[in-house]
Simulated assay, not measured.
Amino acid sequence: MEMDLTAPAVASWAGMIRLLIGDLDEPSGLTAAGAEISPWSDFLMTGLLLAQPHNYSERLARRRSDATRPPSVRRVLDLVEREPAGDLSLARLAAVAGQGPRALQRNFREYVGVSPREYVKWIRLGRAHNDLVVGAGGTVAEIAFRWGFTHVPRFAGAYQERYGVAPSMTLRAARPGPARNLGRIVDRQVAQRIGKAPLLF
């Protein structure tokens, strides 16, 4: 593994190591006074994971962004996850956040990467997709209405844009009979699309 010691984060991590080495060489240092070494090693390992790019860098960055989101944004995210089919108008979301609609939209774009409306649509599409895949009962329109979509053509367009197939194809593939072979094709296409979908939150 190559490390760019000129990168600010790596240089900061290297400074931590020098600090620890200096303390180990100091008779009156914390380590010489019997301080536990495990917190130091945990600290250095965490610093390395944050400073050096690796396979899990994106996931760690996402977890850090979750931790830095203000409580107002987290309350709205929790509500949308908990009640995706409920009243999720901007007015209600702003009331839950305890701030005005404009401030909420600004914070959402800064900390989530999308507007509140886009986030609600993303979550609802995911729930509708789950029902369509397993054939949870009902027509495409009924499933769309179940998850808060009031305009079926717009739902179908948003669904196809996200998953690469029409919702009717996903539902047809979930049913037994002649559509079973089609289901394998659709599932493969959907999986490919999901793999390419941006993770915004």
Rank of each mutant, 00 (worst) to 15 (best):
M1V: 14
M3T: 12
L5I: 12
A7F: 10
A9H: 11
A9N: 09
A9K: 11
A11I: 11
S12R: 15
W13I: 02
M16V: 05
I21K: 04
I21W: 04
L24I: 11
P27S: 05
P27H: 05
S28T: 15
L30I: 02
L30K: 05
A33S: 09
A33K: 06
G34S: 02
A35F: 05
I37V: 12
W40S: 10
M45W: 09
T46G: 13
T46N: 09
T46I: 07
L48C: 08
L50K: 09
Q52N: 10
H54P: 05
S57R: 13
R62P: 02
R62N: 08
D66H: 10
A67N: 04
P71Y: 03
R74M: 02
R74T: 03
L79K: 06
V80F: 02
E83H: 08
P84R: 11
L90N: 08
R92Y: 00
A95N: 01
G98Q: 05
Q99E: 12
G100P: 03
R102V: 14
N107R: 11
F108C: 12
F108H: 12
V112H: 07
P116K: 09
R117E: 13
V120L: 10
K121M: 14
G126Q: 09
R127M: 12
R127E: 13
H129W: 09
N130Y: 03
N130I: 01
V133I: 06
V133D: 02
V134Q: 06
V134P: 01
G135E: 08
A136C: 06
T139V: 02
V140C: 01
I143N: 07
A144K: 01
R146N: 06
R146E: 08
T150E: 14
H151L: 07
P153V: 05
R154A: 12
R154C: 04
A156M: 02
A156E: 06
Y159W: 03
Y159Q: 03
Y159V: 02
G164I: 00
V165W: 00
A166V: 00
S168W: 00
S168K: 00
L171F: 00
A173N: 02
P176E: 04
G177Q: 12
A179K: 10
A179M: 12
L182S: 03
L182Y: 01
R184G: 07
V186K: 01
V186S: 04
D187C: 00
D187V: 00
R188E: 06
Q189K: 13
R193M: 12
I194N: 14
G195C: 08
K196I: 08
K196N: 15
P198E: 15
L199F: 15
